[in-house]
Write a protein that binds this DNA or RNA. Structure first.
Length: 164
DNA sequence: GCCAACGTTGGC
DNA sequence: GCCAACGTTGGC
């Protein structure tokens, strides 16, 4: 059965886990643990193998989309929610009902020139992008195909940040 | 460091 | 079920 390729964006604070950390990981692959937001989890449940993901560095200066990864494993229980020693432990989560899930992603490529949130705000066609919505805090979010195309185009043309 | 914009919790 | 209080995210 034909499946439509889906596009996503996932945020990470580079101090916690950066795209360079992903590049250094075995097989350039990591599990995306620690998501504790239902909306974000539900988006991860929708992910299929080979879906494409923007890797975004948040809470840094400047915050930017730094590259592309792809989904290599569908949603499965996040074991860190079950471990009382873990920072992301959630007592509501049990083996019978894990509640929280994660996916695996693999690095596709790093952008030569990361796209800052500042320059993305000025781009025609990205006005409705979830990342740019005021007050948006979703750490896992869908990206429209047309938005994906625009952003990748910008990265490929190596457009640098304009001075205001 | 500030604070807007959330999501969650818990008393009622 | 309402909503105030609280905690968190993340741009600035």
């Amino acid at each position: 059965m034909y499946k439509v390729m889906k596009y996503w964006l996932m945020k990470s604070e580079p101090e916690a886990f950066s795209i360079d950390d992903l590049e250094r990981s075995p097989k350039k692959t990591t599990c995306w643990d620690g998501v504790r937001n239902y909306q974000a989890r539900n988006f991860m449940r929708e992910m299929e193998i080979a879906d494409q993901v923007f890797f975004y560095h948040s809470s840094t200066d400047p915050s930017c989309i730094v590259g592309i990864a792809e989904v290599v494993r569908k949603a499965y229980p996040d074991h860190t929610a079950l471990d009382p020693e873990d920072k992301h432990y959630d007592p509501k989560s049990t083996n019978a009902n894990p509640i929280w899930e994660m996916i695996d992603i693999k690095l596709v490529r790093k952008f030569d020139h990361p796209l800052t949130i500042e320059e993305l705000r000025d781009v025609t066609g990205l006005e409705k992008m979830e990342l740019l919505r005021k007050g948006s805090r979703l750490s896992v979010q869908p990206v429209r195909p047309e938005e994906w195309k625009i952003v990748v185009g910008l990265a490929d043309r190596k457009v640098k940040s304009k001075k205001k």
